[in-house]
């Protein structure tokens, strides 16, 4: 029983950053902006949270800096794709690379490593509460509110939405602001879980979150479930530490690849047909 409790706690701890990032990705993609930049936002947020918290001693300012960084990166994606009309994949790539290089530089240049590991952080439970709240708000908001309907409509067809008096760019800016805040929380939580910033510490979680969105067929409830399932896989991997399962030794890399394999299978249509928003990634 105790084992199970530990496992469940691990699932929540490891799954929640994925849930936050997946919800962020979902809102972005539903608005029509393809978002492969979740990874960069998580990483940027984790780094900013750590740096500011360590240098000011205030975990709240740290979280604020994390939210701000992810939001700026998120709005950067809007600017690149909507104003400059750059291909969504290329723009997302750019954001990821800026974040990867920028955090590496910032962590090395601005502050000495010893300070980083001692950055004060907020309680994990606060993030858990915010995560649950975000999930509920987005699931209900998608199905039953005006912004939810507008988000869906703009992601399907911005041109027709404009004819109906909607402002696609306003909807998209709102969506990507939300994405920024959710990724900011996710990145700060990853940092909190780890205790200190290390280079590339998000380790592909942004992509796993995106995989959860795709696996879920761009549906909010399913996206939360998929993100938690991927969290469970990670928890299993840690718990088993490469120990044999039914006498077979499974390398940890095999576990790590499970989310991607699941997403591939989902994309082939074996798990029922899903389709992305019709306007996704169209410039």
């Amino acid at each position: 029983m105790n084992d199970f409790l530990t496992f469940a706690m691990n699932v929540v701890a490891l799954g929640l950053p994925l849930v936050l990032a997946a919800l962020g990705g979902l809102v972005s993609e539903r608005s029509g902006i393809m978002n492969i930049a979740l990874e960069g936002k998580l990483l940027g947020a984790a780094c900013a949270t750590s740096l500011v918290a360590a240098s000011t001693g205030s975990p709240i300012l740290g979280l604020g800096a994390g939210l701000l960084t992810a939001t700026i990166l998120s709005l950067g994606l809007v600017w690149l794709t909507q104003s400059l009309r750059i291909d969504h994949v290329v723009a997302g790539m750019a954001i990821n690379l800026i974040s990867l290089g920028g955090t590496n530089f910032a962590a090395k240049a601005l502050i000495d490593q010893n300070q980083l590991s001692g950055a004060p952080t907020l309680a994990k439970e606060m993030y858990w509460g915010l995560g649950v709240l975000a999930a509920v708000v987005i699931i209900v908001g998608f199905a039953r509110t005006r912004p939810g309907l507008h988000l869906f409509a703009v992601g399907e067809d911005p041109h027709k939405s404009r004819q109906m008096g909607l402002s696609p760019i306003r909807v998209r800016v709102g969506a990507l602001l939300t994405t920024g805040i959710l990724c900011g929380l996710g990145g700060a939580l990853i940092l909190t879980n780890a205790g200190g910033f290390t280079d590339g510490m998000t380790a592909g979680r942004g992509f796993i979150a995106l995989a959860a969105v795709i696996l879920a067929g761009w549906r909010p409830g399913a996206a939360v479930a998929a993100a938690l399932a991927f969290g469970a896989i990670e928890a299993l991997r840690i718990q088993l530490q490469g120990a044999p399962v039914f006498g077979v030794e499974i390398p940890t890399e095999a576990w790590a690849s499970l989310p991607y394999i699941a997403t591939l299978i989902a994309l082939t249509g074996f798990l029922g047909k899903t389709s992305p928003p019709a306007g996704l990634g169209r410039i």
Binding site: P147, L149, S161, Q163, L166
Partner: peptide, 26 residues
Amino acid sequence: SQHYSIIPALTTLDNLMLGAEPSFAL
């Protein structure tokens, strides 16, 4: 317009009220 502004993935009802929803909560 000649090309209808109906979004196929939305329900008929949602298409009807899109852009003119009576309230924040639908």
